[in-house]
Nucleic acid binder design. Structure first.
Lengths: 197, 197
DNA sequence: GTTCTAGCCTAGGGCCCCTAGGAATGCTCA
DNA sequence: TGAGCATTCCTAGGGGCCCTAGGCTAGAAC
């Protein structure tokens, strides 16, 4: 009998690949085990249970996404940084749909595991760094980061759900939206709402 | 033996209530049947299968959400309409989290069923009507609608996922974001990107 | 009152999650 | 080299869920 040589990392990766190919909902102990040529009971030596496995996939995806964004935005500022950040975000969601939904699905993740992951902290740094060129101060900085992240996530989520199935290509809307957000950041209503209508 | 008096509507409603209380992932034939005091096999007389039931919940939720937005925005224009639309959206997501995730989850819905639902058409009308005061023309109108819907959905999704768990209350960010979007719609970069940095 | 149409039932197969306990593998160390 | 040992992977099995097949009964139609 040849051992399969499983580790937590290999199991998690197999789950991530399965998520991208068949959807995150199809990530199941039995399916992952089949993909690894192993019985499902064997996975419990490496992963606590299904929820644990899904949480690890979510953490892996968050780290990968953050890393891609970091690579895309280094050395850029202003609108260049905004566009690079946004495009890297959307590209990851397109390239790894299952992993991406894993990051979104609210899973109770093991705190110790989450603390060891470098993703979240790095993601916050990147978000704030991207906006450095626009001259915003707290709390506007936090609000702007949240608005941008909301828009990026919402766009790819609606795109994945097929809400943009009409005539105009999503790509066109996407680039126009980035233009608009850039303008917004330059005209950010700092002290009180600019209510001119 | 007393009959339970099931109908498609009652089964769908029970599923929707269960979704709000326990999460959309917990909407299962067995759970819904238990809630109705019935065996799971009995539900198949009213609903084709689990996927069909979930699709009906999604459609119900979409209709309810659209109705609330319609009530909130009638008679309003400009920023008033924008704020009313956005607040109704977020309020529905908060009041019915399970139903709301049902609308987001990409479920293959029976086309005949979807065609009979008034929600989608009405939702499109409302979105475009809300922007009537900003003087946008196509394709900017479509892009603006998509941007707004992306932001609204992304915000409540990240909120539900616990991404805004830090110091600043989400409410504050939300109202500032609406101010910012209002400014954005007034400064919408119509012809070519306003690239002034 | 009989017949017919439903609504609801039990029975059962297949898949999945997870635990318990056994066998084989490959490392450590005398 | 070979015994001991931790780890890896296995089979067996219980419980839950989805769904189909087929039977029984309540209420409507005649």
């Amino acid at each position: 009998m040849v051992r399969a040589g499983l580790t937590v990392e290999r199991v998690t990766l197999a789950g991530a690949e399965l998520a991208d190919e068949a959807g995150f909902a199809q990530v199941t102990m039995a399916q992952v085990a089949r993909r690894l040529g192993v019985r499902d009971a064997s996975l419990y030596a490496h992963v606590r249970n299904l929820e644990d496995l899904r949480g690890r996939i979510a953490l892996l995806a968050a780290d990968e996404k953050t890393l891609l964004i970091a690579e895309a935005t280094t050395g850029r500022a202003g609108k260049d940084a905004l566009v690079a950040y946004a495009n890297a975000w959307r590209a990851y969601a397109h390239a790894h749909p299952g992993r991406y939904t894993a990051t979104q699905t609210p899973i109770p993740i093991d705190p110790a595991l989450a603390a060891a992951a470098p993703g979240p902290r790095r993601a916050v740094e990147l978000s704030y760094g991207m906006l450095r060129g626009y001259g915003l101060a707290e709390p506007d900085l936090t609000d702007a980061v949240r608005l941008l992240r909301s828009t990026f996530h919402g766009f790819v989520a609606l795109e994945a759900a097929g809400s943009f199935a009409h005539a105009r290509p999503p790509e066109d809307t996407w680039s126009r939206a980035l233009d608009a957000l850039h303008v917004l950041l330059e005209h950010w209503p700092t002290s009180r709402a600019g209510d001119s209508s």
